[in-house]
Amino acid sequence: MTEDRFDEFLKTAAQGYNAPPPRTPRDEMWAEVQSARATGPRLVHGAGSAAAPAARHPFAGRRLWLAAAAAVLLVATGVGVGRWSAERASVRPTPATAAANSRRAAVPNRPAETPPQTDTQTMDPTDLPSSRVAGVPDDPAIPGSNRERTGERAPRVDNPPRTNGGRGRVISPAGRAPVPQLATAVPGGSVFRGGKPAPTTGFVAGSDLSANQPASAYQLVALRHLSNAEALLTSFRTRSEADAQLDAQLARWARDLLASTRLLLDSPVAADQQRRPLLEDLELVLVQIVQLSPATAAEDRKAIENTLQQENVLTRLRTAIPAGQRGT
């Protein structure tokens, strides 16, 4: 067979390639055109009509919304419980502080019930230099006081640091960065910083109860969050290309998880040297997924896949979730 004969054969044989139906659905398409022009130029490719995606996944959107709302509620509740229990732990007297208080009560000329310590309070009297006389007032205006005896002037405070409500955080005069807080040394080794547990330890030393409660709450929330993130990333990886319409729903889900991830990054959970990088990588992936839409190019989806693979995010997520915690 010559080349010309092959071309002729090809023309004939190729007539069946994607052969259109004998009748063009003129009226149906015209109705759609008119409808689309009446409501705007929005048209969803890949479905029979703009309403088709909703009909194809009648409950998918609602399920995703419920799951996302539940996840956000859970994380918010957990973070709230964690903060509440952390504040309670800082207020609750430990055995060491109780001993210090009883010692204070035994000091003459000092009221047995001192007001609650604030960030601006100075060191505990038990830590005073030896040159100072216990039981003598510190005010230089009072004759015979420690400062009056030593010639020490009261420190001038131009811009005294102010406390930030009851949260024990000290805000600098500029109102920006927290300034170093005055530490109250307590015999026994535990340290209070501005009414809040020292950030290095996270919780008050010497109190097992107060130390465990916030840790458990944060851990629980973190595990739930990681489980949800794993579910999202698995959904993203296993979705087919035909499910491009789901991208918008995945993006909404990811947006909620992104907020939770950032909350956790700002919580004691992120103090864990292994968990923090995972949360940071997860944040990066979620930011990418948030930008997904049905119109997203395939290269962008590929970039997310690459990030997932290069950083082993999914594997690390699964490793971080203990057995039995998935799907809870």
């Binding site: 390639y17 994607n18 052969a19 259109p20 139906p21 063009t24 659905p25 149906e28 398409m29 759609e32 055109v33 689309a36 022009r37 130029p41 048209l43 969803v44 490719h45 890949g46 479905a47 029979g48 088709a52």
Partner: peptide, 24 residues
């Protein structure tokens, strides 16, 4: 419509493309 169908090979897609063509 015929050309869209030949290229797409799918009735829904061909309809979408035809409609989008005329809307544009």
């Amino acid at each position: 419509f015929r050309l869209a169908f030949r290229l797409a090979g799918d009735d829904d897609l061909a309809r979408d493309f035809t409609q989008a063509t005329f809307i544009t």
